[in-house]
């Protein structure tokens, strides 16, 4: 493909769509957060509440930040996929193809051929969760450390699991609760409910614990450096020199590694729960039976 002025203009536009939301988030944070010192661990800041019939809708930092992440990922997708050509692939096209191929491979390996169409959904979960956790690198509030956001995703996954369990009719679904013996059905119901709860708590707890531990370590280091160098004269005693660099080591684990790992685990568990809850053999039998009934009645 020939690169002309329009191509480069679109390039810049998509890059701006990618970068501007992050910059906007940083500006919003700087404008709305008062300067603070010492240890402060707090939840998402509430910007405004919109009155609603059942319960007031709270617009908080986590919602704003997740929309910013969605915009940024949208810009990234546009940037990677514009100007595709079959004969002369550009570098970004190779990257986009690699992402798509890897996700399809992952979904095929873990879910089987019936769920081939799931790869866009899984990729969306991976991107949204991963980039949300990586938002801490810009000093923004990560939406995944808010239980409400992650609980929303977990409920979505729970609906999907139930939908695929009900593929063979509601009666089959109810029967699956009394699986080994009907006596155990309360336990089965509990384990069914525990799925979304544990998914939400796992993701939220991991990201939030990283934030809490990082804050505590940073505060502790500033106190330690005040003890060590506090009696030096002038400005020398006020520099928390232990805070330079040491919290960054923790950040590599808690922000980058743990954030990406949790995104991967959330996507992986989604795939496993959906594909293991789906009664594939029964579904095939049912399809065959329906087909034979149809052909006989004809």
């Amino acid at each position: 493909m020939k690169k002309n002025g329009r191509f480069y203009f679109l390039d810049c536009l998509y890059l701006l769509i990618m970068i501007l939301p992050i910059l906007g988030g940083i500006v919003l944070r700087v404008l709305t957060h008062p300067a603070e010192s010492g240890v402060s661990i707090r939840g998402a800041q509430v910007f405004c509440t919109i009155p609603m019939p059942v319960q007031d809708l709270i617009i908080s930092e986590s919602q704003i930040n997740s929309w910013l992440v969605i915009l940024a990922v949208f810009g990234l997708c546009l940037y990677l996929t514009h100007g595709l050509s079959a004969r002369f692939p550009t570098k970004r096209q190779v990257v986009a193809e690699w992402i798509v191929e890897k996700t399809e491979e992952l979904v095929y390996e873990n879910m089987g051929p019936f769920f081939k169409g799931f790869s866009p959904f899984i990729c969306a979960i991976l991107a949204l969760s991963g980039f949300s956790s990586l938002l801490t690198l810009f000093g923004l509030y990560p939406p995944t450390s808010d239980l409400n956001v992650v609980a929303g995703w977990a409920i979505l996954v729970f609906i999907l699991i139930t939908y695929y369990k009900m593929k063979c009719g509601p009666w089959q679904y109810i029967k699956s609760f009394g699986d080994p013996v009907p006596l155990l059905s309360p336990l089965n119901v509990i384990s069914e409910v525990a799925t979304p709860v544990s998914m939400a708590f796992r993701h939220y707890g991991n990201v939030l614990s990283g934030t809490v531990i990082s804050t505590l370590v940073a505060a502790g280091l500033s106190g330690l450096s005040a003890i060590l160098l506090g009696n030096l004269p002038g400005i020398l005693g006020e520099i928390p020199f232990l805070q330079i660099g040491i919290p960054a080591v923790l950040s590599v684990y808690f922000d980058i590694f743990s954030g990406c790992l949790q995104a991967y685990i959330f996507a992986m568990l989604t795939m496993l729960y959906i594909s293991s809850g789906f009664p594939a053999d029964l579904y095939e039998q049912r399809k065959l039976r329906k087909a034979t009934i149809k052909s006989v009645s004809k």
């Binding site: 544990s198 708590f201 796992r202 939220y204 707890g205 991991n206 939030l208 614990s209 790992l261 992986m268």
Partner: peptide, 20 residues
Amino acid sequence: MLMGCAIAETTGLYALVIAI
């Protein structure tokens, strides 16, 4: 192993949520 570790971590995270 990473998957198993993540699932084994769940009980600890429940305790963390309670503590928070």
